[in-house]
Design a protein around this nucleic acid. Sequence first.
DNA 1: AGCCGCTTTGGAAACGTTTCCAATTTTGAT
DNA 2: ATCAAAATTGGAAACGTTTCCAAAGCGGCT
Lengths: 358, 358
Amino acid sequence: MLRRPTIKDVAQRAGCGIATVSRVLNGQGSSSEQTRSKVLAAAEALGFEFNDLGRSLQSNSTRTIGCIVPSLANPVFAEVVQAAQAEANRAGYQLILACSDYDGGLETKAIRTLLAKQVDGLIVTVGDARTSEGLELIRAKRTPCCLVYNTPPDNGPGDGFAAWTVDNRGAADAVAEGFARQGHSCTGFLALEFGRSDRSRERYEGFVAACARLGMAHPVLLEIEEQEGRLLQLLGAMLAEHRGITGIFASNDYLALAAMKAARDLGMQVPADLSIVGFDGISTGLMVEPNLSTVVTDPKAMGRGAAQTVLARLAGLEPPGRPDPAHTFSFRQGGSLGPPSAGKSDGGEAATSPPSNQ
Amino acid sequence: MLRRPTIKDVAQRAGCGIATVSRVLNGQGSSSEQTRSKVLAAAEALGFEFNDLGRSLQSNSTRTIGCIVPSLANPVFAEVVQAAQAEANRAGYQLILACSDYDGGLETKAIRTLLAKQVDGLIVTVGDARTSEGLELIRAKRTPCCLVYNTPPDNGPGDGFAAWTVDNRGAADAVAEGFARQGHSCTGFLALEFGRSDRSRERYEGFVAACARLGMAHPVLLEIEEQEGRLLQLLGAMLAEHRGITGIFASNDYLALAAMKAARDLGMQVPADLSIVGFDGISTGLMVEPNLSTVVTDPKAMGRGAAQTVLARLAGLEPPGRPDPAHTFSFRQGGSLGPPSAGKSDGGEAATSPPSNQ
DNA sequence: AGCCGCTTTGGAAACGTTTCCAATTTTGAT
DNA sequence: ATCAAAATTGGAAACGTTTCCAAAGCGGCT
């Protein structure tokens, strides 16, 4: 009595064929009242539950959607996953999750594994949509897929993929304008794992372009490597090295918050000595003093949208329309962005407009 | 050319039997150099990849572990999942994730679905281990399972399950001592979705017992329902209603942080007018001013431990030893816990001193 | 040449399900 | 009663894989 009962066991106990059991238990085809009750009784008595493997093998569909994100430590992705899952469940699909840990090798491996498991669709955030091997695999297998927080490039593996994403360049532009409005000219861009996230790269490029457009100095790229622990010291060293910087644009809110803490620990005032702007709009940003200025995005909407896109494709329907890029983000002015204090506000190209208010 | 190539196609192209292809591609059994290269060439040419469904059906193992947590919005569970996933991957297993959204019905459904998918093992945090239907299903199917953050009861569905958990009562005791040491006597316990989390209940019960032991007043239970939005107002109303309270123990850090913000918005000083202690030790707690006093737990260790326990059972090995309950948490004294200000510090039964300030 | 033992090979069964189809039973109308 | 139509039923194939087992190939030994 170790083995789980199969449909055969039910058939035997009910004294009928397996086809009949299948029909009764799935409520399809016709069956007499008498057989129906016998089958039901047998299934009940044995505690029978279907085995999805046989089912999926036969039906060529697993009612399963794979989802790959860099990490759940970032609440943005946690929300994406949560929303995608809710949406998938509503449609009777299950989500299989994998995290790539910002590692291209793991990313590829995860995609390969999920494809082997015959997921019906995929929702994916890759490190770099221009070079991802995993996307090649997905394309080769023609599995419906939607990118999240990645911009599909014009060529390369990601070309032609559906995507729900944020207008990183536009958002970076808004941030630059925010800095300019407060009278900043000399800024830095803070990124973690810069090479492993095309989002980060796009934000940086957009910021660089916007700074140029606004006559601000070319932003200093502050790239740090490690995640745990030493972040504070690294940041301290960088701020010490680049004294002229009056504002920092961090590629995500976690970094921005860490930078705020580091600045405080270094005896600097935010925003008087150093303004900080983040990206994502995680809720923690609203809990700190001063509030974090940031680019607010809607990860739930992204996850939901991506899921709907994949599900629509699976159902043969029209995918939902995607939002106007300009509405994929909003700049939230918080207390962490203010005019640079007199002592620090330096020349640069923007010296013409001194801070005026507040 | 729509259909994905199967092992049969490879066999045909290589001019051999499917058994041979299976052996070559899996590197098992013997095969001549000549056949090997022909098979490899054919597989390569066709872009063949194994279909895990057939494989799993045959081998009666999916190399898949199911994981169910209430929500990913809580970073504690995000970390649990992350750690469990890393551990599972190391052992060649894949994690299938489902979130129950703190809903018993969804929880049962998710467990049923994962069992139907023939997961080899399960890592689960249920709402209430004493009554969970899902645990019954798992038990009936004899699927190896480890609880996380649940205490297996002496009877009921969870009885006898392995578990990696925190000593909630012990931790609540430490919190009560923390309050007592600072001179608090009249406290409140703040819980969200109280009935849906046996962790919350244990913390409350432990806190009640400890308060009694320490001669403090019976804590007021502040239970709020909604998650989004109105939390601030609700909290405000409660604090206004229970003026005598000088300290709040929140059942998790999110609530604690929200409470801190609410207190501030109400013009109260933390900790002078109101001390706040949380539970979990999420990193955000260290970023706010003042620091959040909290019970620090190690969700990564829990996730890792639970995964190891399940994996060991699958491999027929001894499960790893579980930590001494006393070491499953540590009380972190932060700035949000201090002595009550003179005006508010009241005596004994709390009714004796009417609210005085603000 | 004959035989033994080793390597290599492929047919076939099995895993649990759905579904086609043909066979059987029931129903209803004459 | 008879017959056609409709309802019910179960055998068998199919999904893609692994593995058992018997057969075939082959080298070297007497």
